[in-house]
């Protein structure tokens, strides 16, 4: 028994020493939003708490910048490279190059659809399709069989997340004949753009004699939902006619809006990838099997839960 304990202690000591010397590089797609800052902060905090040497780069949502960042980070010779991709395609070559150098790549948040499975140690991604389905179910429960026209507010055009949010939402909506999508607007992940787009849509609908033209709003992101709320606030006398809003996100402002009764619900997307990344690296270093595909789901927040919480 004593011998076994000694062996375990020795292994742990060696593992700890190895981890202390391990260098991890992080290439973030962006650090200009609360969510990406939350993701990066969590990963960095967890890695640093474990004694890893961490270097991070911000690509500013530029694919070419991220490619350059990855090459520069890889040149420093880290053992692991964590990538939150700016785009779902376009990083295949650089990931292959990095993998060929013996650096283990872990994708987080979004995944690159064109990366070969063999080049990546693990994909730790949000379950975007699940989030879209949840939004549809929340609205279905709200309308409870009543007819409803849903206005879909998409965020970042032609992105991986937009595709899966839309797919999940529409797949789920097919089960509810009382609900249909009346229009799709594009908020470009910006609350002011979203606000202007909605105001324009309402104006056009009223001119066409269709009233406001929708019964509910599904926002792909916080900014779309907050832009809708700002549009509501800017129209006097509309308080009684406000259509319920559901969105995917979880920023502080969105939680406040929920707590203020301005939204029906928010499907909060996960930001806590840090512990999962550390666990993956720990397992890989110990020679254990690593789960290659992990889909993270968030939670549904309504006004009741929002009163006691803040967003990321």
């Amino acid at each position: 028994m004593k011998k076994k304990c000694m062996t375990v202690l020795t292994v742990l000591l060696l593992l700890n020493t190895a981890m202390a010397q391990t260098r991890v590089a992080i290439s973030m797609n962006d650090l200009s939003t609360a969510r990406t800052v939350a993701v990066a902060s969590d990963v960095m905090a967890e890695l640093q708490a474990e004694g890893f040497e961490v270097e991070i780069r911000d690509a500013g949502m530029s694919l070419s910048q991220q490619t350059e960042d990855i090459r520069e980070l890889a040149a420093a010779g880290p053992e692991y490279l964590i990538i939150a991709p700016a785009r779902s395609i376009g990083l295949r070559d650089v990931i292959q190059d990095v993998a060929a150098q013996g650096i283990k790549v872990i994708m987080i948040d979004r995944q690159t659809t064109d990366a070969r499975a063999t080049d990546v140690l693990a994909n730790l991604c949000m379950d975007a399709e699940w989030a879209g389905r949840q939004c549809a179910q929340i609205l279905a429960e709200y309308f409870d069989g009543r007819d409803a026209k849903v206005l879909e507010f998409q965020g970042e055009a032609a992105s991986w997340s937009t595709y899966y949010f839309t797919k999940g939402f529409r797949d789920a909506l097919c089960a509810y004949e009382n609900m249909q999508i009346c229009a799709v607007l594009y908020g470009e992940d910006d609350r002011q753009v979203s606000q202007q787009e909605l105001l324009k849509y309402i104006e056009e609908s009223e001119v066409a004699g269709e009233g406001r033209g929708f019964d509910a709003i599904f926002g792909h992101g916080d900014e779309e939902a907050l832009g809708v709320i700002n549009a509501y606030l800017s129209i006097r006398g509309m308080e009684g006619e406000r259509a319920p809003i559901v969105c995917i996100g979880g920023e502080d402002d969105t939680i406040s809006a929920l707590a203020a009764g301005q939204m029906l619900a928010c499907v909060c997307m996960p930001t806590e990838y840090g512990s999962l990344v550390v666990e993956t690296i720990r397992r890989d270093m110990a020679g254990e099997a690593v789960e290659r595909e992990v889909l993270l789901r968030g939670e549904v927040i309504t006004a009741r839960e929002a009163a006691d919480m803040r967003g990321y």
Binding site: I229, D253, S256, A257, A259, A260, A307
Partner: peptide
């Protein structure tokens, strides 16, 4: 109430924007 305060925050946020 918290709800009132949050509503006021949203309004002022909008004004600040």
């Amino acid at each position: 109430s918290e709800q009132e305060r949050r509503m006021a925050e949203l309004t002022v946020n909008n004004e600040l924007s």
